[in-house]
């Protein structure tokens, strides 16, 4: 028989007994909020398609997450919002006219294969949204590389040929004689009046979100700075298209600020993050400029490749103990 309990039972835990009260879900929410401007731009430029695609991806991710956890007999983790974030990021990496069922397949692949198969959030070696995008690029090559002109007509002169291609495809084709340094082009790239994936059109919207994340200290400056800086430097040295065009076109800003900074798959120390960012920038530019390569854009692959060597970077960039 249980002896009579005297007094109240207090919580017993090891110190510290205070907490910053920041949770995984609040971090994920921060990123979601930061993606809002970009998403709004996507809706503005591509209309209902953007809403449908994002809705499909998020729903597919959430359902897959819930089912996987159920199958693994683990607690449900859809509350941590990481699946929502994966869904939204995936949608922002898809071309606007992609059939919805393909988007759903991508969402299922992202969560089921790229995340939960490894044990869930914290254990996945690759960024789930990007891995799913790579998978879709291989499986649905046609639809994944078909672009429609956005609602706005391209105002930069001489780019008529590019109305149904992205600026990067245009670069890859080798647009001789095209005036890359004209201000109108940079303006289009900055505000988003170009073709591309849902989320990569407007650099401005992405940068607003990135600033929010930096202010909230959700991410640190290291990876975006190193990534974009390397792209800029590489383009400058390479001497073809102006560096700013390279930085603003395609997924560099989206990738550098929102995809490469994914906690789980990027290095943990500041030094490691710098190396990681530089690596991403370098691989991106190699893919973009290699004359033998078929892909006009390399952000996704560069981040995935760097994800793969993140453990290695972590291993060699352990912090040095204070006093040593």
């Amino acid at each position: 028989m249980l002896p009579k309990q005297t007094g109240e039972r207090y919580l017993l835990s090891s110190s510290p007994h205070a907490h910053a009260r920041r949770t995984v879900s609040s971090l994920m929410l921060d990123v979601l909020v930061a993606l809002l401007p970009a998403f709004c731009c996507a809706v503005y430029f591509f209309g209902r398609r953007a809403l449908f695609l994002a809705g499909t991806c998020i729903a597919a991710c959430l359902v897959t997450e819930a089912l996987c956890r159920l199958a693994m007999k683990r607690e449900n983790t859809i509350g941590d919002l990481s699946a929502v974030l994966t869904g939204l990021l995936l949608a922002l990496n898809l071309p606007p006219d992609l059939p919805l069922w393909m988007a759903a397949v991508g969402g299922v692949f992202a969560i089921g294969i790229c995340k939960q198969a490894f044990g869930g959030l914290g254990y996945n070696p690759f960024n789930p949204a990007l891995a799913a995008r790579a998978f879709m690029l291989i499986s649905f090559t046609g639809p994944m590389t078909t672009w429609t002109a956005s609602a706005w007509q391209i105002s930069a002169g001489g780019m008529d040929a590019a109305t149904t291609a992205t600026p990067l495809a245009f670069i890859k084709k080798g647009a001789e004689g095209f005036d890359w340094s004209q201000a109108a082009l940079l303006k289009d790239l900055f505000f988003g009046n170009v073709n591309g994936c849902l989320g990569e059109t407007s650099a401005l919207a992405l940068l607003i979100g990135a600033c929010y994340l930096l202010c909230r200290r959700t991410i640190t400056w290291h990876i975006p700075f190193a990534f974009i800086g390397t792209v800029f430097l590489f383009a400058m040295v390479e001497g073809g298209v102006p560096p700013l065009v390279h930085v603003l076109s395609g997924g560099v800003v989206l990738g550098a600020c929102f995809m490469a900074t994914d906690y789980v798959t990027s290095p943990i120390t500041a030094k490691g993050k710098l190396i990681f960012g530089c690596g991403c920038g370098l691989v991106t530019m190699l893919i973009r400029t290699a004359p033998t390569g078929a892909y006009p854009e390399g952000v996704s692959f560069s981040i995935l490749i760097m994800n793969a060597i993140t453990p290695l970077i972590n291993r060699y960039t352990q912090p040095k103990v204070f006093g040593k």
């Binding site: 914290g122 943990i268 352990q318």
Partner: peptide
């Protein structure tokens, strides 16, 4: 409150916070 912990997400908050410059996550 009573809390429950979830797996490490490698965010590096602890690495930045550690005054001894250790890697508490690892």
């Amino acid at each position: 409150f009573q809390y429950s912990s979830s797996p490490c997400i490698n965010c590096g908050s602890c690495v930045r916070a550690c005054p001894m410059q250790l890697n508490p996550a690892y």
